[in-house]
């Protein structure tokens, strides 16, 4: 088993555990927590897509590499893919905003109904 498979395994197990929680749990806060687990799993998955074994982080911090980069001669596979990292960077920040929005709805629902169990929130069904 190489390391890349291990990272995919971590991402997928997080997503699966999150899906399980989403399907089986009835407490609203646990469901939101399951959402954040799926979120983290998806982030791990995306970053693992850009990972190249043996490559360094996409930060050009020594002069030799800078000279290569100036003349557009960066060796293929020298650094990992920065695009997915930029995507995940912003996705994490959006994730906390969305989580807070969901939790504020949970607090509001609790104030109205006095319960967190979705089985008792009949009027959510249609």
């Amino acid at each position: 088993m190489n390391e890349l498979t291990l990272y995919y395994l971590a991402a997928m197990s997080l997503m699966l555990v999150g899906f399980m929680g989403l399907v089986w749990k009835r407490n609203l806060i646990k469901m939101v927590l399951a959402f954040t687990l799926i979120d983290t799993g998806a982030h791990l998955f995306l970053v693992a897509l850009g990972y190249l074994p043996g490559a360094t982080a996409p930060i050009v911090d020594d002069a030799g590499m800078f000279a290569q980069a100036q003349s557009l001669m960066v060796r293929q596979g020298a650094v990992v893919d920065p695009v997915v990292q930029a995507l995940v960077l912003t996705a994490i920040v959006i994730g906390v905003g969305v989580t807070a929005l969901m939790l504020s709805y949970v607090v509001r629902i609790y104030a109205r109904r006095g319960t967190l169990d979705i089985a008792e929130l009949r009027r959510l069904k249609w």
């Binding site: 890349l4 897509l49 850009g50 996409p58 293929q76 893919d81 920065p82 695009v83 997915v84």
Partner: peptide, 11 residues
Amino acid sequence: PSAGYLSTYFT
């Protein structure tokens, strides 16, 4: 490992 056009260009 992905080596799309965009990531190659950006690096």
